[in-house]
């Protein structure tokens, strides 16, 4: 019985109680035309971003704990290996217990499958790359700050920070949409992480018998100076869906009527 285990750990009960009292906060983003670094037609066409609601903060350890307490098949000692590697939630004290200091830190050591399952429990899903990139292009005052060298420099300085220090709590400064922590805290899973870099050439140069990729066109990245964003794509593309790391967390997206696949 999960309840009995919880009763033995009072602060845990409080943490979960608090999680229930305050539903996760989402903010509406109107969308619009957007020059993604991954252009729609592989050349230069702007993407059209449909309106969506993005979770204000990444999912915290306490929120993820409340989820696995209800959906016990996602606990680290019960999860099917096909959905998460051996490091899944390895930073928690027990399979259903976290350190007080971890409560408000973003949850990491979560696989894509686990992140997706959490979002489904909130009536949401992981954001697409495009939805994530659209919101993350903003700074505190502008919807698209990407051309500003200072914006890029700030992100790159985060990338180069050592990763062995403790993560800060979620809830950093809000951008112009009211969304927090898109940069500077953790990397984040996106729904289509396995769709970002599909081929620069349809044939393996060394072996003409191997057609690794289908599709006539080559994927080309736009705005190659934007290392800050391209590195994130490279990182996400290198992950497998069951992988977990100490630096990858997630947030969720809700979509209103008229969602297209």
């Amino acid at each position: 019985m999960p309840w009995l285990r919880l009763l033995g750990n009072l602060w845990l009960v409080l943490a979960i109680g608090a999680g229930h009292a305050v539903a996760a906060d989402y903010k509406q983003i109107a969308g619009g035309h957007f020059a993604s670094v991954l252009p729609a037609d592989e050349k230069a066409a702007d993407m059209q971003v449909a309106p969506y609601e993005l979770r204000v903060t990444p999912v915290s350890n306490a929120e993820f704990l409340a989820f696995v307490t209800k959906s016990t098949e996602w606990q680290r000692d019960r999860i099917a290996r096909v959905f998460a590697d051996a490091q899944y939630l390895s930073h928690w004290i027990t399979s259903d217990g976290i350190d007080r200091a971890q409560r408000d830190q973003p949850v990491t050591h979560v696989s894509w499958f686990a992140a997706q399952a959490f979002c489904e429990s909130e009536g949401a899903r992981l954001p697409t790359w495009l939805e994530w990139e659209f919101a993350a292009a903003a700074d505190t005052a502008r919807k698209d700050a990407r051309a500003d060298p200072a914006w890029r420099e700030q992100i790159l300085s985060w990338y180069s920070r050592p990763s062995n220090s403790a993560l800060a709590a979620v809830g950093g400064p809000a951008n112009v949409y009211g969304i927090r922590d898109l940069h500077g805290l953790v990397w984040e899973w996106v729904d289509d992480f396995n769709a970002l870099l599909v081929s620069t050439d349809s044939r393996d140069q060394n072996d003409p018998d191997r057609l690794k990729f289908c599709g006539a066109g080559a994927m080309s990245l736009r705005d190659l100076n934007n290392y800050a964003v391209l590195m994130r794509i490279a990182m996400l593309s290198s992950l497998k869906a069951a992988d977990t790391t100490a630096n990858v967390g997630f947030r969720c997206t809700k979509i209103g009527a008229g969602e297209k696949s």
Binding site: A40, D41, E42, A45, V198, S199, K212, F213, C214, G215, A216, G217, M219
Partner: peptide, 9 residues
């Protein structure tokens, strides 16, 4: 892709 095709491995 926008033309209805899929690039895929």
């Amino acid at each position: 892709m926008t033309n209805g095709d899929f690039n895929h491995s």
